[in-house]
């Protein structure tokens, strides 16, 4: 039950994009097509889960042991940057098309604050290893959910008759705002 609460909390109630407003850059940047949005979500989920787990291990097994907790941010960033490098090489090798589609947003996962946020929050909340896994996967899927919903709406918006001043970034931000409002509806789900 505990795991379920942590998972749902990270997925819906405290959705990293729509409730914490972390990781907005890829959320807006890669959400114009459904399939690339989904791949981006998967890439972020992968990096997020791995980063949180490795960060957890480094924090609890190394930093705490030597009383070096103040190094958490530096070492976490190191972890994230290395993982993104790995993912980038992997995607480039496995799917050049996806590599082209994600473009600059792939290396930008490095600076995606949602990922550092998950790693830091997991440590801050003193989660156990298993809880960290559940939390980070939930957060990653939450990001995927948000970006996929957004991409679905934006694909429909392409066909809509948007008033000229709102076209492009304007209507995108308004959509994101309304989406965030609707996610407020989940707030009673977990205390």
């Amino acid at each position: 039950m505990e795991f379920f609460v942590i998972f749902m909390s990270a997925l819906l109630v405290n959705n990293f994009v729509l409730s914490y407003f972390l990781g907005i850059c890829p959320f807006v940047g890669v959400s114009n097509r459904l399939d690339s949005a989904f791949s981006m979500g998967m890439a972020v989920t992968f990096v997020m889960s791995l980063a949180a787990v490795v960060s957890w291990a480094i924090y609890n097994l190394v930093l705490v042991k030597y009383g070096l907790e103040f190094l958490e941010i530096v070492s976490f960033i190191l972890v994230i940057a290395s993982l993104v490098q790995l993912v980038e090489m992997f995607i480039r090798r496995m799917s050049p098309v996806l590599y082209q589609t994600l473009g600059i947003y792939l290396p930008l996962i490095t600076t995606n604050c949602a990922i550092l946020g998950v790693a830091l929050l997991a440590v801050l909340k003193q989660y156990t290893f298993a809880e960290t896994v559940v939390f980070s996967v939930g957060a990653g899927l939450g990001f995927t959910l948000a970006i996929v919903v957004m991409a679905g709406i934006r694909e429909e918006l392409d066909a809509a008759d948007v008033p000229a001043p709102f076209r492009g970034a304007g209507i995108t931000f308004i959509t994101a705002g309304i989406l965030a409002l609707t996610f407020m509806g989940f707030s009673g789900l977990v205390r």
């Binding site: 030597y66 190094l71 190191l78 290395s82 480039r92 090798r93």
Partner: peptide
């Protein structure tokens, strides 16, 4: 703690650089 910090970060950095360079050779 300064020495420990330098050693720790160095070790973590080295660890990841080894992994990445191996992966680079494999996934080139």
């Amino acid at each position: 703690s300064v020495v420990a910090a330098i050693m720790t970060m160095g070790a973590i950095g080295l660890f990841f650089s080894v992994i990445i360079s191996v992966a680079y050779q494999k996934l080139k």
